[in-house]
């Protein structure tokens, strides 16, 4: 299974940096997310996770450090969290960490909503920008 690695660029700050590593079972998503056609960007990530949870079936750690995501991106992130919750319900081992900027308390509410909507436990971790 191939890894996904997308670097962020100052000229396209609306795309997040992505590192999905099947060998390590670690998925990192960081930066900002407010691109056009959000679903087209997230679909390969969702398909990668479907593939991993169906075929690799090992422990998975997901680290999200998005300092801003628009509401279209929140829908896609919710789809990812629902997929992870299904994996967990089927016996898969999943850990989700969400790193939020200490000076942006609105993100805490957002993460709480994600937890409530997906049923997936999310570990909130603070960082300073």
């Amino acid at each position: 299974m191939e890894n996904i690695s997308l670097q962020s660029s100052p000229t396209t700050p609306y795309f997040p940096e992505v590192n999905f590593n099947a060998d390590q079972g670690i998925c990192d998503l960081k930066g900002e997310s407010y691109m056009e056609e959000t679903y087209k960007f997230y679909l390969p990530l969702i398909n990668w996770l479907k593939d991993y949870t169906k075929n690799i079936k090992r422990k998975l750690e997901v680290n999200i450090k998005l300092i801003y995501l628009n509401t279209s991106s929140t829908k896609c992130v919710l789809d990812i969290l629902e997929l992870l919750k299904d994996y967990e319900d089927q016996g898969g081992e999943v850990k989700v960490n969400w790193y939020y900027d200490k000076s942006d308390p609105d993100m805490i509410d957002e993460v709480e909503d994600f937890e409530a909507e997906s049923g997936m436990k999310i570990e909130l971790k603070e960082f300073e920008q």
Binding site: E37, Y39, N70, T71, T74, K75, C76, D113, A116, E117
Partner: peptide, 24 residues
Amino acid sequence: RELKREQRINSPGEKFGARIGLIQ
């Protein structure tokens, strides 16, 4: 907050997004 959750869960997704921009 309730409306936002409801709307996001029921949104068809894909090109329609979450349709919660005004609430947000």
